[in-house]
Design a binder for these strands. Sequence first.
DNA 1: CTCAAATCCTGACGGGGCGTCATTGACGCC
DNA 2: GGCGTCAATGACGCCCCGTCAGGATTTGAG
Lengths: 213, 213
Amino acid sequence: MSNIAYFPAMPPREDNRPGKRERTKTANRQAILDAARQVFGELGYDGATVRDIIRLTGLASGTFYNYYKSKEEVFDALADDGARRFRPLLRVEFEKATDFASFLRGAMRAYFDFLAAEHETWRVNRPAGETHPQVRATPEVTAVFAEVREAFERVLERDHAPPVDLDYLTAACIAVAREVGDKMLERRPMDTQGATAFAVGLILGGLPALPRP
Amino acid sequence: MSNIAYFPAMPPREDNRPGKRERTKTANRQAILDAARQVFGELGYDGATVRDIIRLTGLASGTFYNYYKSKEEVFDALADDGARRFRPLLRVEFEKATDFASFLRGAMRAYFDFLAAEHETWRVNRPAGETHPQVRATPEVTAVFAEVREAFERVLERDHAPPVDLDYLTAACIAVAREVGDKMLERRPMDTQGATAFAVGLILGGLPALPRP
DNA sequence: CTCAAATCCTGACGGGGCGTCATTGACGCC
DNA sequence: GGCGTCAATGACGCCCCGTCAGGATTTGAG
């Protein structure tokens, strides 16, 4: 019989895709992340076990530990992922902004929109009484906080605004964004515009009334 | 032989103290709470185990479960305890207040003072990188939140202030208090007055700028 | 005082999740 | 095709969990 391989079982790669080793590695990492999202969503952070996550991927338990040291670390990876995707949006708002007011408005709006969009995919079926899992200070999350602080600093200076306690201000803004955002998610319809108006109004109104250090 | 009991091994109780059963029960409950505070302080919430807590009390492991169903439940009991002691302070501020401004100032000041005082006794030696354990929505904590909301409602009405989104406002105020309070605890000296001035300034200034629903 | 009932303390035990590691087979390279 | 490397595997030992039958102590009645 003719042995010409019209459709060879494994055609040679002419591109420069990484080898199979590398590909399964990223696939596994992604699979674990996806499974973790789902399991955390269904069981909550406390209720979830590493075994639950790994079971969903079909991998062996030991494989999990080739990628993450613990349940905690996967969770942080998910948070990091969110922060990493939010960072560029924040940067865009900083570039667009002409003063503190416009930056704050843009950043808040971006955050609430992001939250509303993410919320759909995180789809949490939270066991009664369990609070939101605490987002820990992962590198990427810390970076976002630092970026907010720095943006505030620059944009306030650009405005020739009187000095304020930047640490308190940053903490307060992030706190307001988080809590108002949380409440917003519980309402139907989710009104990102209303939440933005509230948070921005509060902070912009409060800014001139702050004590001068 | 004469059976007059000059110094009976167990003198009759003339008071109406509860019986020994009741006394050891409250003693045990308190011992577990104290041990839990210490263990959570040293190991952090995640690092602590029920065995760590019970070991510190000298009781048997099974005894723990006569009082609390889980590590989670003791932690909640500690939070509840804090909320229960804060509640009357909040109520006093409400009674004293003449308008929204004075209530907010009093309540914030009370909270920051409370925090500073509690901080000494909670004395946390937190493992690097671990975030503050999340305070869960225990009954007493929920009650405090509701009380803040109701106080806001009444005092704003008394002021003939224009209507606002009370849920957002309450959430935002608590968020600011929490985060600014956290930052305050990290500073030396702990400046409760400065923190109060900041939080009150922000919110009082922001209030007139809020969107009207 | 005595005794039985009630209470609850005790610690050993089965269950299960954790993280490890020796083994195995697939992959990449020559 | 052959060989060195590397990740996947899953059984294993460890530790913590929550339970429960047995025992010690307290209570109240006679």
